[in-house]
Amino acid sequence: MSTAQSDRRWAALARELEFSQLPELRRQAEGWRTGLTGLSTLLAVLTVVKGQEQLVGLPEGAGRWAMGLAGGAFVVLVAGALLAVRAAHGRPGQDILLGGQALKEWTGEEIKRVRRALRWAAGCCLLGLVLAVSATGVVWTAVEPARHLVRVSTPSAEVCGELVKADGKGVVVRAGEGAERRLRTVPQGQLVSLAPVTAC
């Protein structure tokens, strides 16, 4: 195609765009709506449903690591998803002069921007996956301190906690959580039963 024919086509295309502004804007809005809705749903499921259930019971250091990695994965994946939506549906913003040559220049630049956005989106996705897998790895491999949980029954009460000591005088159990955590001693005479449990 000669330059003159090409220029004529670009000018005709720019002229055509004047008459398709609203449908074009609506199409772009629909693309963004779909992308953002999907992203919001995914994030809601991840944060509300999964939440911190996997982090409960981890040693403090491992918990912080897992939290940091999962948070990083979260941010990077959101950025990647937004970049992918931007590459697919464009970005709402400033208008350009609807002339053939202006449109031709813009198209050349936009192609570069879309390619760049796609590259970044793919990079973010990969990095997000690596971070998410690392977070899972930390959770799985974190060594939980050995806890020998027992349930001790007396005629008047039950005590559940970590077995500290058992001898001829009685049984010592560390019961409670956090600030409430303290040693409880059950004298041998009051001991009715002592059974190992997996959780209190």
Binding site: R86, G90, G93
Partner: peptide, 17 residues
């Protein structure tokens, strides 16, 4: 020559709107 949306996307960064 009017100003308008050139198609899917315009100049600038992701959040420049």
């Amino acid at each position: 020559y009017g100003f308008g949306l050139p198609g899917t996307g315009t100049k600038g960064g992701l959040f420049s709107w």
